[in-house]
């Protein structure tokens, strides 16, 4: 499990990120506004993908907690782009058949009279394939 070559290569291909550039400073996790929601934190995503330990990530709700605010991307001193790694793992998960995190049936419970269309559109893009 610790060295799942195929998964690792897939995630790296989808994300376009070179995880070996990480110097383990932890600035991504220091800057992350969703840190406390996550079981695995941005620096762990980078490190676990680099070491091929990806199954736990695929099974974790942490995938759906990233806000895509890109703060980790802009503040990373090494240009690693952790948010892209999270995105790639999430895509790998939701692209599986029946793995959509959200369906149209969930919408009535979410919306109120002020809900902007942008919220629903964005959520669908992030949580479904």
């Amino acid at each position: 499990m610790h060295n799942n070559r195929y998964l690792r290569d897939e995630i790296i291909r989808i994300s376009g990120v070179n995880t070996a550039k990480c110097m383990k400073c932890g600035k991504c996790s220091a800057t992350c506004p969703a840190y406390d929601e996550m079981e695995y934190h941005p620096h762990q995503f980078v490190n676990m993908v680099e070491s091929g330990d990806i199954t736990p990530l695929l099974n974790s709700d942490s995938l759906y907690k990233c806000l895509s605010c890109f703060a980790c991307i802009d503040r990373c001193p090494r240009g690693v782009e952790p948010a892209k790694v999270v995105e790639a793992v999430r895509l790998f998960a939701v692209r599986k058949q029946g793995a959509n995190r959200m369906t149209a049936n969930d919408v009535p419970a979410i919306v109120d009279e002020d809900t902007p269309q942008q919220l629903l559109v964005s959520a669908f893009r992030k949580y479904t394939k």
Partner: peptide
């Protein structure tokens, strides 16, 4: 706001 990588905490 900072990370503590050993404690795995923000």
């Amino acid at each position: 706001q900072a990370s503590d990588l050993i404690a795995n905490k923000q």
